[in-house]
């Protein structure tokens, strides 16, 4: 009995300690740096799971430590076997099974299903009439970004490297394809790439032969120079050049974006 009481008291305290640690983590930002509403949603999902699981983690960790210390066999005892020999405890097993089923159902409802629902909603056309469309083409080993609404075919910086410019507070629709625009005679040479901007909080694989979409809502003015997590990174291994499939991203104000569009068009017009 005394063990139960002591353990329960310790468990509550350790749970609170874990809640505090996770709260600090979440406060600092579990995704380190976020620049879209989608990334913030993901962070909330992580935070929810951590908060709910803190007592569970505390229970197991404390149980391990408590058992090691409290039930350690001491040489001085002189007996080998434990006095307590029981095969089962229906109450404990019942609570354990019900809680584990309950927690998993809870996680399925929220955040899994609910957050996914929110994500699907943001992809529905009726909500996205003002979407900025960016056509993303991945080839071995390069990104191409074009803006059909603005007539930009291949956004490049001064060095000829691909670059992605996005206006802030806009819904962005990425149209993702994998093929080589320069060598269309080899339509099957494409491989799977992964389109990821770490600060944007989600990624999609780009599969040759398919057109796929990814939607984000940019939420702050930032760039690769501000935080290197604001970059396009290929995440699906695509051959030797895989690590080099990186492109910087700039999220800028509406005016700056328009200025950049004009500049790009002038460059491409030459």
């Amino acid at each position: 009995m005394i063990d139960l009481v002591v353990f329960t008291v310790l468990w509550v305290s350790v749970s609170l300690l874990f809640e505090w640690i996770f709260h600090t983590l979440v406060h600092y930002g579990v995704y380190y740096y976020t620049a879209t509403t989608q990334a913030v949603d993901g962070e909330h999902a992580v935070a929810f799971i951590l908060y709910v699981l803190a007592p569970v983690i505390a229970f197991v960790v404390l149980m391990l430590v408590y058992d090691l210390i409290r039930f350690r066999a001491r040489k001085s005892d002189g007996v080998l076997r434990s006095r307590h020999q029981f095969r089962t405890n229906k109450l404990f097993i019942g609570i354990w099974v019900l809680i584990s089923i309950g927690l998993n159902l809870l996680f399925f409802v929220h955040p899994s299903a609910s957050a996914l629902e929110q994500m699907f909603n943001s992809e529905q056309a009726r909500l996205n009439r003002q979407d900025l469309e960016v056509d993303v083409v991945a080839r071995q080993w390069q990104w191409f970004f074009s803006y059909p609404q603005y007539g930009i075919d291949d956004a490049q910086d001064a060095n000829g490297n691909s670059i992605l410019y996005l206006p802030v507070n806009r819904n962005i629709k990425f149209v993702l394809r994998s093929y080589d625009p320069f060598h269309t005679y080899a339509p099957y040479s494409g491989v799977i790439h992964g389109f990821w901007i770490p600060a944007f909080g989600l990624k999609q694989d780009i599969i040759p032969g398919e057109t796929r979409y990814m939607y984000v809502h940019t939420s702050k003015v930032t760039s690769y120079n501000v935080n290197p997590m604001v970059r396009v990174q290929c995440t699906e291994v695509c051959g030797p050049g895989h690590p080099f499939m990186v492109a910087p991203v700039n999220v800028v104000s509406g005016n700056d974006f328009q200025q950049w569009v004009n500049q790009q068009k002038k460059m491409e017009g030459q």
Binding site: N161, V246, A247
Partner: peptide, 19 residues
């Protein structure tokens, strides 16, 4: 699957890149 070229030369021209 891949197209290939063959250049012959010495020394390198470099371009700056993210990595």
């Amino acid at each position: 699957t891949h197209w290939h070229e063959m250049m012959i030369g010495r020394g390198f021209d470099d371009t700056p890149y993210v990595v």
